[in-house]
Design a protein around this nucleic acid. Structure first.
Ligand SMILES: [Mn+2]
Ligand SMILES: [Mn+2]
Ligand SMILES: [Mn+2]
Ligand SMILES: [Mn+2]
Lengths: 143, 143
DNA sequence: ACAGAAATGTAGCCTCGGCTACATATCGGT
DNA sequence: ACCGATATGTAGCCGAGGCTACATTTCTGT
C-alpha cells in the first residue's frame, strides 16, 4: 500500500472482497475436483473416500456434499455414491486444468516438486483468468 | 491425482489440511499488514480505517482485532487506536515481504499489473518458504 | 440367512467471520 | 462548555465448516 490509504480505500476493499469471494469458492472447487477424480477411478465417489482424501471426518464430508447439491453441482441418494451434474463436471474440468497449470508454472520457475504440489492446492483458488493466460503464455515461451 | 487414490490418501489429506491451516492464518496476516501500513502512515490504526480498507463493517473489524489481541499480535485500549506487538510487527514485516515477492514474480512471468495485485492478495497466504526462495532465485536470474 | 462390520445419516456442539441494530464514548465547531 | 457528528463498543443473528456421539442402513463372510 502507498501513503494515501484514504483514496486507496475503495480499491483495497474491492481487492479483499474479491479474495473473500474466492475463498468461499475454494472448498466447493476442491470437493468437486476430488469427486470427479474418484468417479474416474472407481465409477463413483463414496462419502468415506471423499472424507479420507480430504482429511476430514465423514459428517464434514456429508455437509460439504449437501452444499454441493444445494448449489447444483452434485447429486446423490442416501447410502449411495455422489455424482456430479453437468455444472459440476464443468467445474471439475476447469479446476483440474487450473491446478495443473499452476503446478507447471511453479515448477517452471524452479519451485521444488513437493512444495509446488502443496502450495498449488491453495494458490489455485486465487488465480484469475488473466493470470492463467499469462501463465500459459510463459510456459509456451519457456518449456 | 493419480489412479490409486487409496494409497495416496494420507498425502492428499495432509495437503488439504495444510491448506486449511494457511486459510485460517490468512485473515490474521492481512489485518496485521494493514494495521502496520496504517501505523506507518498515520502513527496509529483506527478501527474505522481498518474496516474501510478491508471492506467490512466496523464490528467485523473489531472482532478481527479481538482475535489479533487474543493471539498476541496486537494491543489496544477502548476508543483508542490499535497497535502491534513485537510478534505482530514481525509478522507484518514478513507478510509485506512475501506480498511484494509474489507480486514481483507474477509481473516477471507476464501477469498484467492489475491482475497481479488482485491475485497476490489471495496467493500470498499459500506460498511456502521453499517456494518463496525459488521465487527470489528466479527473479535474480530474470530481472 | 443372518450377524457383525462397515458405511452413511443425523443431531448437536464449537469457532470464525460476516452482518444489523443499538448503546456509549469521543471529538470538533460554535 | 455544549451539542451534534463521528467513532467505537456490544449484543445477537446467520452460514460455513470443523468436530463427537449415536442411530440406521448396507454389505459381507460364513
Ligand atoms: Mn485446492
Ligand atoms: Mn486442486
Ligand atoms: Mn492477502
Ligand atoms: Mn497482502
Amino acid at each position: 500500500m502507498t501513503q494515501d490509504n484514504l483514496d486507496d480505500a475503495p480499491v483495497q476493499a474491492e481487492r479483499f472482497s474479491q479474495t473473500r469471494t474466492a475463498q468461499s469458492q475454494a472448498l466447493l472447487e476442491d470437493y468437486t475436483e476430488m469427486i470427479d477424480d474418484l468417479i474416474r477411478a472407481h465409477g463413483e465417489a463414496r462419502i468415506t473416500d471423499i472424507a479420507r482424501l480430504m482429511g476430514v471426518t465423514h459428517p464434514t464430508a456429508t455437509k460439504a456434499v449437501a452444499r454441493l447439491k444445494r448449489e447444483g453441482l452434485a447429486v446423490s441418494r442416501p447410502y449411495r455414491g455422489v455424482f456430479l451434474t453437468e455444472l459440476g463436471s464443468g467445474m471439475a474440468e476447469r479446476v483440474r486444468g487450473r491446478h495443473r497449470l499452476v503446478v507447471d508454472l511453479l515448477l517452471a520457475v524452479g519451485v521444488p516438486p513437493e512444495a509446488a504440489e502443496n502450495d498449488a492446492e491453495g494458490i489455485e483458488h486465487y488465480v484469475s483468468d488473466a493470470t492463467l493466460t499469462a501463465f500459459a503464455a510463459f510456459l509456451t515461451r519457456q518449456p
